[in-house]
C-alpha cells in the first residue's frame, strides 16, 4: 500500500461528495425551472398536500408537545441557578418558534415523508413506471417532483406554526401544573415577549426545510439502484441527506437571520 493511499482515498471521497452536491444542485434547478411551466398536475399536488401535510400533523404535534414540556423543565432547572425561573415562558416560546419547532418538525417530517417519497419513486423506477411515464409523454420531473416539492414548501410552514403552538402549549402545561406558574401570566408573558420576526423566521426555515425534504426524497428515488436493496439504499440515503441538509440549512439561516 502506497504512503499516499489515505490521501487518495480522501481525495476520491471529496470528489465524490462534490459530484453528488453538483448533481443535487442541477436537479434542484431543473425542478424549480419546471414549477412555473405547464402542464400542471393539480391532483398529484393535492395528494402530496395530504400526504406531507395532513398526515404529518400527529407526529409533528406529539414531537412539539413533549419538546415544549421538556424545554420548560430544563429552563426552570437551569434558570433556578441564577434565580431566573420567571424566564420559563419567554425562553420556552423563543426556543420553540426560532429553533426547536422548525428543526425538530423538519427532522420528523423528513423521517416520515422523505423516506416515503424515496421508496415510492425508487420502486417506480425499478418497476419501469418512470420509463412508462416518459413513453406516455409525461415528464417525470413535472409529474412526480414538482407537486411534491411545491406541496412540501407550502405545507411545512403551516406544520411549523402548528408545532410551535403545541410546543408552547406543552411548556404552559408543565409550567402551570408542575412548576407553579399562573396560567394567565404565563400566556401573557409569552405573547408579550415574542416578536414578529421570531415567529416568521421559523416559518421561513420551515419552507426551506420543506424544499429539502421533498427534493431529497425525489432525487434519491429517481437515482435508486436496482431491486429491493437499491430502493432500501436510496431511502436510507434520502433520509440521511435530508436530515444533514436540514441541520446545515438551519445553521446558515440562523446566522443570516440573527447575527446581523
Amino acid at each position: 500500500m502506497s504512503v499516499l493511499s489515505p490521501v487518495a482515498s480522501i481525495g476520491r471521497a471529496t470528489l465524490s461528495l462534490l459530484a453528488s452536491l453538483g448533481r443535487i444542485a442541477i436537479f434542484a434547478v431543473q425542478v424549480v425551472g419546471h414549477i412555473f411551466r405547464p402542464p400542471f398536475y393539480p391532483r398529484e399536488f393535492l395528494s402530496a398536500l395530504m400526504q406531507i401535510g395532513w398526515f404529518s400533523l400527529p407526529v409533528v404535534g406529539m414531537t412539539a408537545l413533549f419538546t415544549g414540556g421538556a424545554l420548560a423543565l430544563q429552563i426552570y432547572a437551569g434558570g433556578a441557578r441564577y434565580g431566573a425561573e420567571a424566564a420559563v415562558p419567554s425562553i420556552t416560546a423563543i426556543g420553540m418558534v426560532r429553533e426547536l419547532g422548525p428543526v425538530l418538525g423538519g427532522l420528523m417530517v423528513a423521517a416520515r415523508v422523505t423516506s416515503s417519497i424515496a421508496a415510492e419513486i425508487g420502486t417506480m423506477k425499478v418497476t419501469e413506471q418512470i420509463d412508462a411515464l416518459v413513453t406516455l409523454s409525461t415528464n417525470p420531473l413535472k409529474y412526480l417532483a414538482v407537486p411534491r416539492v411545491v406541496a412540501a414548501v407550502l405545507v411545512m410552514p403551516i406544520l411549523v406554526a402548528v408545532g410551535d403552538s403545541i410546543g408552547i402549549a406543552g411548556g404552559w402545561l408543565v409550567g402551570v401544573n408542575q412548576l407553579g406558574f399562573n396560567s394567565a401570566a404565563y400566556l401573557q408573558n409569552t405573547v408579550n415577549f415574542l416578536e414578529f420576526w421570531d415567529v416568521a423566521s421559523g416559518l421561513v426555515k420551515g419552507a426551506a426545510f420543506g424544499f429539502i425534504i421533498a427534493l431529497m426524497g425525489v432525487f434519491h428515488g429517481m437515482n435508486s439502484g436496482r431491486g429491493a436493496q437499491g430502493v432500501g439504499a436510496a431511502t436510507k440515503s434520502a433520509v440521511v441527506a435530508a436530515s444533514v441538509l436540514i441541520l446545515a440549512a438551519n445553521f446558515l439561516l440562523t446566522r443570516v437571520f440573527f447575527t446581523s
Binding site: M124, T127, E128, Q129, D131, A132, T135, L136, S137, T138
Partner: peptide
Amino acid sequence: LARFGMLFQGGALFDSLRVWENVAFRLLRG
C-alpha cells in the same frame, strides 16, 4: 413520443391510479 405506445415487460402500471386511469393516462392529459 405521441406516435408511440409501449408495453413494458412487467406492465409498469401506476399503483396509485385505478386500472381505467392507467389505460386512459394519455387520453386524460396533454
